[in-house]
Write a protein that binds this DNA or RNA. Structure first.
Lengths: 352, 352
DNA sequence: ACCTGTATTTTACGCGCGTAAAAAATTTCG
DNA sequence: CGAAATTTTTTACGCGCGTAAAATACAGGT
C-alpha cells in the first residue's frame, strides 16, 4: 500500500455518486459520464482533470446504475463447457484477459458439462444484458433450439465446438489437419495407429477427429481401425482408464500404436498401461505407443510424457475476441457467418 | 423444448417491466417485488397466481434495477486463488452450488495466483456490493492490508488459507492432522519420509505442513529431514519435475520415502522419477515411495497412482457457506472469530 | 478579432425497481 | 359475526446514472 493509497482511504471524503464527484472535479456530471463511457471522448485537459480527481477521491460509478438504463452494456459473456477441465480454464483465462484489454467486463460462466446448466447459463447471461457473448457449447447434447433463440438476441461468437450455422462466427481448432499430421507422424515412425474413442462421445469434436483419422489412414492406403469404448459422461480419464484396463486384458489391440481422441482419454489409458506393466514409448523395448490430442496442461507430466497435437488456443482466443468486439462495436450483426480454424502442432514427447 | 416453452417464446407478449407483469398477473407491483425478494413472504394464493403468470409470460426482473436501490443485494462473492487449478475449480463449483441452493447469486472470481489480481478482484467484488464474501486468499504474498480494509465493509468468511485474525470466520483443512496420519502411515510401512518442499513456498499452508511434519517425526522419535527445492511461483508440477530431476541426479535423498508438500509437486516428482527410471511404489522391487497431500483430481491417474491425504472439501464448502449465510441473514457481524478445521483422510494408492 | 467545429454544460427526462407509510382488503380467531 | 391481525394495495419518493437536445464555451485556423 503506497502513501497515496493510504491517503485515499484515510483523508478522502466518501463520494456517494457521480454528481458529487463531478462537483469535486469541477466538471459537469454528463461529462464525467462520458469519460467513463469512453475516456478518449473528452478533451485531453478534461481527461487530466478527471484522472487527477480520480486519484484523490477514489470514486467508482455504481455498476448497477450504469447498466440500468444503458442501450448497450460493456459486458461480454463467456460460456465454457466446464471450468474444472484445465484446458477450458486456460482458454477462459486467456479470453478474459483479452476482453478486459478490449475495454469490456468479462462475465464467465461454466456449464459443468450439463445441457441443463447450459440453458440456465443462457438465461443467466441474458439477464446480464451483455453486448456480446463468446460461447463454447457443451456438445452434441446441447439444446440447439435454446442456443438458437439466444443467439437471435445478441452478437455471439462460437468457439471450440461448432453448431451448424449458429452464431455470427465460429473460431476453432482444425481437427482434421491436426489429426492428419499426427497420423502421418505415427505411420512414418512405427505401426499405423488404431483410434481410441468412446462409442458415444458427448463432444462433437470427437466425430471430426474420428472422420479425420479414417480419411488420413485411407489417404495413406491403410485401413482404419477403431477401438470404441463404453462409458457415458465427461469423466474421460476414468473412462480411458477403466476401458484401457479392459482392452489390455482382452488384448483387443490390432496395433501397438493407439491414437486417443483426446488427451484426457490418453491420460486414463496411460494409467491403465502403467498398472498393467506395459511400457509406453517409442523405440525398442516398448510395448505400446500412445498419443493424444489437445496438449492438455497435464500432458507434460504424465508418465511417460504424452505425445499429442496442440491447439493454438492463443490465436483461437485472440481471433474470437477480436471478431466479437468488432461485431459489437459496429453495432450490426454479421452478414455472413465466418468460420476460422487454426492449425494444430505436433508436440513430440515420450509416449509415441 | 417442451410445448409450454415454445408457447412462451412464440405467443407471449414481451414484458417490459414489473409494472406490466403485475398488471397481467392481477396484482400490484410492490407485491410482485416482495415475491421476488422472498417468495415465502406472500400469501400462498398470491404466490400461486404469480407463479402461474410466470409460466405464461416468462418475465424476469432486471437485475441492475433490482440491485440499484437495494439495501443488501442477494449476491455472494467467491474468490479463489486460481481457477486453472482443478482443485480450486472443484471446490469453487461445490461452493457455487451451495450458494445457489441458499438462494443467493454466486459471483466467482479468480486471482490467477497473483496478488495484483487479488486486489483487482477485491475492488471488483466491492463494486458488485455483495451481501457477503467467501475468500480464499492467494497466499502469504496476499496484501493483508487490502484484505483487512475490504473485510471491514462486509461479512467475509475465509477458507482454504488462513490470514491471522482476518475475516468473520475461517474454515479449512486440518493440515496438522492430515500430515500426521500420513507420516505415521509412512513410518509404519517403510522408511521414515523426507519432506519435499519449496524453499520459498507461495502458499501459507506449506508452512503448516512443514511444521506438522517436523512435529510428527519428533513425536515418533525420528529426525525430520527436508529437501528444500528452488523455484518461484505457482507452477508446482514444473518445479517438482525440474527439481526432482536434479535431486535424483545428485542423489540427495536421505530416505527412499518422499512426502511432498502437495500433490502438484508430487505429480512433477513422479514424472521426474519415471523419466530417470526409478520405480515408484511400495514393497520389494521399488526404488522410491512418493506421497502427496490434497487428493488432487488427477492424483488417481498418475503413474503410479498417488498416495495422498484428502481434504474434506465437501464439508469445508458446506460449513463455509452455512457460516456466511447465517452471518448475512442475521444482519450482524461475527462477535468472535471462529476457526473450523476438518480432518483429512489417508488415500492409499500405489505410489507409497 | 472573427469564424468554424468540437467540447462541455445546462436542462430535463426516464430507466426499472426498492422501499416506506398509510389505506384498504382479506384472513384469522374469539 | 365482529374485532384484531395479517396481507395487499395505494401512493409517493428516490436510487445513480444514461441520454437527448439546446445553449454555451473553447480550440485552432485565417
Amino acid at each position: 500500500m503506497t502513501r497515496d493509497d493510504r491517503q485515499k482511504y484515510m483523508d478522502a471524503p466518501k463520494i456517494r455518486n457521480m454528481e458529487e464527484f463531478a462537483a469535486l472535479s469541477g466538471l459537469s456530471r454528463p461529462t464525467i459520464s462520458k469519460y467513463f463511457h469512453d475516456p478518449g471522448s473528452v478533451r485531453a485537459s478534461t481527461r487530466t482533470k478527471i484522472e487527477e480527481a480520480l486519484e484523490r477521491y477514489d470514486y467508482r460509478p455504481n455498476i448497477y446504475a450504469m447498466n440500468q438504463n444503458r442501450r448497450l452494456t460493456k459486458n461480454i459473456g463467456i460460456m465454457v463447457p466446464n471450468l474444472a477441465d484445465p484446458f477450458f480454464a486456460e482458454i477462459a483465462r486467456k479470453i478474459e484477459g483479452l476482453v478486459i484489454a478490449a475495454g469490456y467486463r468479462p462475465m464467465l460462466v461454466s456449464s459443468h458439462d450439463g445441457p441443463a446448466h447450459e440453458i440456465d447459463n443462457l438465461d443467466q447471461l441474458r439477464s446480464l444484458k451483455p453486448a456480446g457473448v463468446l460461447l463454447a457449447p457443451v456438445g452434441r447434447a446441447s439444446v440447439k433450439e435454446a442456443v438458437a433463440a439466444f443467439i437471435e438476441d445478441m452478437p455471439t461468437v462460437l468457439f471450440d465446438s461448432n453448431i451448424d450455422g449458429l452464431g455470427d462466427a465460429f473460431v476453432g481448432h482444425d481437427n482434421r489437419q491436426a489429426t492428419e499430421i499426427m497420423v502421418e507422424y505415427l505411420v512414418r515412425t512405427g505401426e499405423p495407429p488404431v483410434f481410441f474413442e468412446m462409442r458415444n462421445p458427448p463432444n462433437p469434436n470427437a466425430f471430426k477427429r474420428q472422420n479425420a483419422y479414417a480419411a488420413a489412414m485411407e489417404a495413406l492406403g491403410l485401413t482404419p481401425h477403431f477401438i470404441r469404448i463404453e462409458g457415458e459422461g465427461w469423466n474421460f480419464e476414468e473412462i480411458g482408464y477403466t476401458e484401457g484396463l479392459r482392452v489390455i486384458a482382452e488384448r483387443r489391440l490390432p496395433s501397438d500404436t493407439i491414437l486417443c481422441s483426446n488427451d484426457r482419454l490418453a491420460i486414463g489409458l496411460l494409467a491403465a498401461a502403467y498398472e498393467k506393466g506395459w511400457r509406453v514409448g517409442r523405440g525398442a523395448g516398448y510395448a505400446l505407443r500412445i498419443a493424444g490430442h489437445d496438449d492438455h496442461p497435464f500432458a507434460r507430466f504424465t508418465s511417460p510424457s504424452l505425445t499429442t497435437t496442440s491447439q493454438n488456443y492463443a490465436d483461437i482466443a485472440r481471433h474470437a475476441v477480436k471478431t466479437l468486439v468488432a461485431l459489437v462495436e459496429s453495432g450490426a450483426r454479421a452478414s455472413a457467418r465466418e468460420t476460422t480454424l487454426f492449425d494444430g502442432k505436433l508436440v513430440m514427447r515420450a509416449s509415441a
